[in-house]
Structure formats: structure tokens, C-alpha cells
Simulated scan of single mutants.
Amino acid sequence: MEKDITQVLQYNRELQANLQKKIAAVEAAIARNINLQNKLRRLKKSQVSTETKTRDFGPPFFVDIDGNTPPKNDDIHLRDRPKKFKPIKWIQQEKESLTQGVYDQNLRRECIKAMQSGQLLDTVLEKDSQYFLMNVEGLNWCELSKQYVQNKTPEECIIQWTTHEHPSINKSEWTAAETRKLRQIASRHNNRNWQRIAMELNTNRTAADCFKQWNKQTSGPRKWTKEEDEILARAVDLYGEKNWQQIAGCLENRSGQQCLHRWTKTMNPAIRRGRWKTEEDEALKNAVNMYGVGNWVKIQKFVLGRTDVQCRERWMNVLSPTVKKDPWTEEEDKELKRLVGLIGVGKWSKISAEMNGRTDNQCWRRYKVLMKQDDEGESIMNTPSSENEGEKNMNR
């Protein structure tokens, strides 16, 4: 009898121990559930705070729950028409806010799905953060723009996310092999249908990125024709030297930047050509002392009629105190030939950097002289008279 009572007590103790373990597990689950509920409340609170946000009692007077207003009539369209359209770039803070908005919306939706299906929220929170950035289906872009990027429209948010910020977009540098493949695919499609071309390329590039890369590879610099120069001169006379986009509209396939560069560097009749005067050299020296070497755009304003390129060439090749003007020595000639053989013909900037005090222009001109001397020396050695003299010397 005593043995049975002892055995029953032992069983009772084991059951109590197991029960305590179960109670501890339940209490831990309750604590975890409370923590998750608090997170959900904070997410819901951030959503409600924007929806119940008070607004000023002024126009527009009628706004629906998504922030949409009634369509404007013709008078309002005319009044609100902007005089000039100036696109505003996305700043880094706005991009980060947009990313946070997409993340929060996808996280909230996944948590609601888990609760409705009876799953633990731990399974949602354990997922990688990238998971909540991939989905774009069903996102409330109106809410997202109001809550996270208030100075951007829902349409702007959609375009920015799907064409620039989505994590699946390949933002790395284009490789040579990828560019070759792009040109082959584009050629098969007659350089059209860039959405299809991007899909066949299969490197996670957008259609816009593919078109930009193709255009960059196929459109090299095009020389200005005499007719284009004449049109440019008339357009500048008509619109002035500031409205370069309007001027570019007068020419076919020329940008405002190209027109500006062509006019200021070449076409402007105020540009002085020919020899530099003493007064110009003095003005250039004073401007360099004021702004330092390299600020040629500012410097050229103090040398009337000279471009920034002319000022740079004059200083670097003539006026700079580091320029060596002494006759070339035999050692310098040997070093110049050695560097040309090592670096290559035409790389005069790199070669001049190794020649103490000699400019790229000096190196180029000196190399032409040396090559001419070598050619003349070879021609003299190969003349019949020189061959006869050599035979006479041998006979002696």
C-alpha cells in the first residue's frame, strides 16, 4: 500500500513539473503576442494619423478618402497652367522615405494576412527586409505619397519606384559583353520596342536604361555643317545668348548644351583670333593670380574676346613660369623618344607629365622635328653617292 502511494506521488510531481513548463511556454507566447500587437498598433496609428489629419478650411473644399479632388474646369486649367515646366529631382531623403513607405505597406499587409489565416506573426517578421520591397501589386500609392513623400504625386512615386528604386533593377556599370548583346538584340528588333529588348537582354535593366546605353554607343559626335552654323547665328540673334533650349529647337538633333558650346567656343563673333597682345597677357596673368590655375571659365571673363580654352592654352604653353623655354638638349630628345615608345604616339599629356617643364604641345612639336631629322638621315644614307663613298672607304 505504501509503495502505491509513493508511486502516485511521484507521478503527481512529474505532472506538476510538466504543467509548470507548459505554463511558462504559454506566458512567453502571451508576452510575444502583446509585443506584436503593440507593433501593429503603432503601424495602424501611423496610418490613421494621416487619414484623420486636419486640413485648412480653404480650396479645394471637396476631397475624398484618397485625397482626390473634383476635375478642374477650363478656367481653372488656364489659371493653374505653369509658365515654365521645371522637373524637380528626387533628393536622397525622398528616395529613402519612398522605400520606407513601400516597406511599411507590404509589412502591414503580410501581418494582416497572417492574422486572418491564424499564422504566427513571427513567421512574417523573420523574413528578410528585401522581401517587403519586391512587391508592387496592390500598393496604395495615394496613401504612400501623402504619408511618406508629401511633395510628390502618386504617379511620380510609381514612376520613381518602378524605374529607379526597385531593388530588382540592375544599377551596376554596363559591361562590354552586355553592351554587345544589347546592340545585337536591338538590331534584330530594328532598334524599336525597348521593353521587349530589355526582357531579351535578361540582365534586369529597364527599357529606359537599355535605350540610353544603345543611344550612347551608336550616336558619336557629329560635326557642325555650314548650314547649321548659319541657322545657329540667326537663332542666337533672335532669342539671345540665354535661351539655348529655344535655339536648339531651330536645329535638328542638336541639344541646348551643344548649341551653347558651339557658340561660345567657336561661332561668337566677339572671339579674338591670332596673336596675343601684351595687354591680354597681363590680364591673363592677373586673373590666374586671382582665381588660380584651372578656373578658366572665370579667368576668361577678364580677358575680353578670349575663350576659356584659349586662356588655358596660352597659360599652359607660354606664360606659365613652369614652362621650360630653353633649347632641347640631347638627353631630353632621347628621353622623349623613349617615352613615346613606352606610352605611345599621341599621348602627349601623359608624356609631358614625365618631361620636366615641357608642355604637351612642346613635346608634340619636338617629336615631329626629331622624326623629320631621322627620315632625312635615312634618305641620305640610302642615296647612291653615299653607297659609292662607302665602297671607296672599303677599298682603301
Rank of each mutant, 00 (worst) to 15 (best):
Q116F: 07
N295M: 09
A248P: 00
L43C: 06
I158V: 14
T225N: 07
N12H: 08
T163F: 03
T50L: 08
E252D: 14
K84H: 08
I65C: 09
R306F: 12
I65P: 00
I197L: 06
E227D: 11
Q130D: 11
K146E: 15
S117N: 15
K127T: 03
Q7D: 07
R312E: 12
W194F: 09
N395I: 09
A17L: 04
L238I: 06
A176R: 09
L40H: 02
L182N: 10
S145M: 08
Q7Y: 07
Q150S: 14
D281P: 05
K171M: 09
C311K: 00
Y131Q: 09
E387S: 08
N356L: 13
C111H: 05
N393T: 07
R314H: 03
Q105H: 02
K39A: 09
R41K: 11
R108G: 12
T179F: 00
P321S: 04
W90C: 09
K242P: 01
T163I: 05
V102A: 10
W276D: 02
Q213K: 15
L251Q: 02
E173T: 14
R338A: 08
T123I: 14
I380M: 15
N317H: 12
I271W: 11
L370N: 03
A17Q: 10
W214H: 11
N140M: 05
M115D: 07
R234P: 01
R205V: 00
S168H: 07
M316I: 14
G344I: 02
R254Q: 06
L125K: 10
K72I: 12
W328I: 03
D56C: 10
N18C: 11
E173I: 10
L40P: 00
T307H: 01
K39C: 11
Q213E: 15
W296N: 02
V369H: 08
G346K: 08
E2C: 06
L107D: 02
K171E: 06
E165D: 12
R338Q: 09
Y148H: 11
D281N: 15
Y131L: 09
V318K: 03
M355K: 01
K44T: 11
G101R: 00
T225F: 01
G274P: 03
K325E: 07
D374Q: 11
P154F: 02
G377C: 14
Q300E: 10
I231N: 05
L144C: 12
D237I: 04
Y103E: 06
V48S: 10
I159H: 14
K285H: 07
E378K: 15
N190P: 03
E252T: 13
L284T: 01
D333L: 01
C157K: 00
F57M: 12
R314G: 06
T206G: 13
V303Q: 04
P327L: 08
T266Q: 10
E200R: 11
